[in-house]
Design a protein around this nucleic acid. Sequence first.
DNA 1: ATAAACAAGACAATCTTACTCCTATTTGAT
DNA 2: ATCAAATAGGAGTAAGATTGTCTTGTTTAT
Lengths: 152, 152
Amino acid sequence: MQVTRAGEYAIIGLLYLAKQPADRTIMIDEISEAEGVPKSFLAKIFQSLAKGGFVCSHRGAGGGFGLAKPTGEITVLQVLQCVEGAFALQRCVTDDPECVVSTTRMSNCTLCAVFTEAQNRVNEVFARTTIADLLHPKPQVAQPIKSAASLN
Amino acid sequence: MQVTRAGEYAIIGLLYLAKQPADRTIMIDEISEAEGVPKSFLAKIFQSLAKGGFVCSHRGAGGGFGLAKPTGEITVLQVLQCVEGAFALQRCVTDDPECVVSTTRMSNCTLCAVFTEAQNRVNEVFARTTIADLLHPKPQVAQPIKSAASLN
DNA sequence: ATAAACAAGACAATCTTACTCCTATTTGAT
DNA sequence: ATCAAATAGGAGTAAGATTGTCTTGTTTAT
């Protein structure tokens, strides 16, 4: 898996929408300028978000985007999967029949199992975090960041 | 972060060494053929593993590689960091001063915090899993794989 | 001395990322 | 009806990462 710019911009865009009055219709141009995100790219990303049902779009003059759901019902995992496709830490984790580890080595691969477990941990974090959580940070989300380096 | 072929091959290579008699010196050619991994690429990867102190290399005729540590003292995290460099789920997680999220938005970024938390979960899994664990799978490692899809 | 084996670095093909651009299509206002 | 504003969709592209290969050393056992 990798959280690319697309996923990052998607969440930033949704957060921007969430901070506006609910009835406002907001143009890509405004979000792009306000958040310093490339306009054309953001437009592409918002196409995905619209298809995914996270935002509703209004074309034509006076058009733009608005949130399609309450912020508490949009999880980070859903957004990332929407704009980046199914994202996996490693090939084993997906159903990819080309996975070298699983196909050429062992059908019951312990290495694949470890990758899958790690992937599940990531998914758990992203699945329990909503846009609302990012707007109104709670201590337990922001606080307990053990340094990755300390795990060496 | 992404677990690339390099990381995958490194672990596969170490597992192969671990399965051999401890006193044997094993050539890249043998590992490559046995495990179906490209030879030149594996040689490059083993250079890193040697520098990282995971294997010891012996040059010249009759040379090859052997494990430099007990399998229980080599964690997946260490190996991945050795061959892939510091691997991060997202730019925020590293100290990259170019991170768009943290620099242009908020110094105390909740989104970065979520990425970092997810990264820490991954690191925990990889840090507690050793080569020995992969050789002798215990139920709690192989078993509790909740489907990633079910977390949607 | 020679052949076997790793060490190191340059090089290359392919893929992914991170975009842009152009042409619709929709819509509100005149 | 027409025009301008806005998204929709698809094609295209430059840079960088991945996944290797190749060549030229250097070490070492015989």
